[in-house]
């Protein structure tokens, strides 16, 4: 399937998902669906660096929070303008704020992408584990900065008023956010799939397999790694941008929640890291499971489930669900090939 065809196909799927969600006639579906879609984007973004290039990012929450706080900073811009700028200019800014969600997503994406690029630039010359450790550090540094930055609410947090309905379309605002996240998911999956099938995808795979051999084959490994950290970071930031509107009240602890970091890693690992299907599968399964467990038991138990599944999968099924499916298919294929006779080579 060529990329334009894939985009059309996934838009159709997205439309069907939206239609079904509307049919349910319950706002909770949009609330819960938004969270799951957010994880689809985060998991896909994580996998572009983690799954394709083999570099572990523990700081997904930081990139997500960067997107969210970019939104807060932009939404609060009129306050700042009223204080420091001449009235005419201030009223122009007040009129332009709050910008529509897609603009906020772009802004969050640019900021998070730049931070991704910077982190990569500082650490990617070192061994892979140092990059992983640096991303852990990055999350804490950013959180400290935000906690101490009064303009975006500091440790108290910031209110972002969510309109009841979306002015342009007249639909419920949460529904609108859901649609936006649905479109972002399509974007993220399209990007991931396009990378997989392009020259870039080959380059990423060689980095994961053997960087020295990749360099010797003419692959500019450092540049490709920077491309990956930037794209991955930008997508995470985009996923975070609408979050203040979704939650209404953003505080550092929720934006930097460990749940984001864990889920971004667990979902691709459980789904399978070698293809765009893996993170999607993992996010849908784990996201749904968590929503159910949160409602029926508690959010702590749902997080415990994710952690346990992550450990279980990396130990028992290193290639995730996709790997298990592959094995199953091979077995069935082998069983067929032997024509039901003694299963010689089936195992």
């Amino acid at each position: 399937m060529r990329t334009p065809v894939f985009i059309v196909a996934s838009l159709i799927v997205a439309a069907v998902v939206y239609g079904l969600a509307r049919l349910a006639g319950n706002d909770y579906v949009f609330f819960a669906g938004y969270v799951i879609l957010q994880f689809v984007v985060l998991a896909t973004a994580w996998n572009i660096l983690g799954g394709y290039c083999g570099y572990v990012n523990f700081g997904s929450a930081a990139f997500f929070a960067l997107g969210a706080y970019t939104t807060v900073a932009l939404v609060k811009l009129p306050n700042l303008a009223a204080k420091y700028l001449p009235e005419g200019l201030a009223s122009v800014i007040a009129a332009a704020v709050p910008p529509p969600i897609p603009v906020l997503m772009l802004a969050g994406g640019v900021i998070a992408g730049l931070v991704g690029l910077g982190t990569g630039y500082l650490t990617l010359r070192l061994r892979g584990v140092f990059f992983a450790i640096a991303t852990l550090a990055l999350a804490v540094v950013l959180q400290t900065l935000i906690v101490n930055w009064d303009y975006v609410g500091g440790s108290r947090g910031a209110y972002v008023i969510r309109p009841q309905v979306h002015a342009l379309t007249g639909i419920n605002y949460v529904e609108y956010l859901f649609v936006m996240m649905l479109l972002l998911s399509v974007t993220a999956l399209t990007v991931a799939r396009a990378i997989e099938r392009s020259q870039l995808g080959y380059g990423f795979a060689t980095i994961r397999d053997d960087e020295l051999a990749a360099e010797a084959s003419g692959v500019p490994t450092l540049r490709l790694k920077l491309v990956a950290t930037t794209i991955s970071g930008a997508l995470m930031g985009m996923a975070g941008a609408p979050f203040p509107y979704y939650i209404g009240y953003l505080e550092p602890a929720s934006a930097f929640g460990l749940a984001y970091a864990v889920n971004s890693i667990a979902m691709p690992m459980i789904g399978g890291t070698t293809s765009w299907v893996g993170p999607l599968l993992g996010a849908l399964l784990l996201g749904t499971l968590q929503q159910i467990a949160t409602v029926t038991i508690s959010s702590a138990v749902s997080l415990l489930l994710v952690g346990l599944l992550l450990v279980a999968f990396v130990v028992i099924a290193p290639n995730g669900l996709l790997g298990l499916f592959d094995k199953l298919r091979q077995r069935i294929g082998a069983a067929r090939a032997s024509g039901g006779n003694a299963r010689t080579g089936a195992a």
Partner: peptide
């Protein structure tokens, strides 16, 4: 030091893409 996740032909494709083409 082959690229283990790529097929034999794909292993050759990498330098073709990244050197000859470039």
């Amino acid at each position: 030091r082959p690229f283990t996740s790529l097929s034999v032909a794909e292993n050759l494709r990498v330098p073709l893409l990244y050197t000859v083409k470039a």
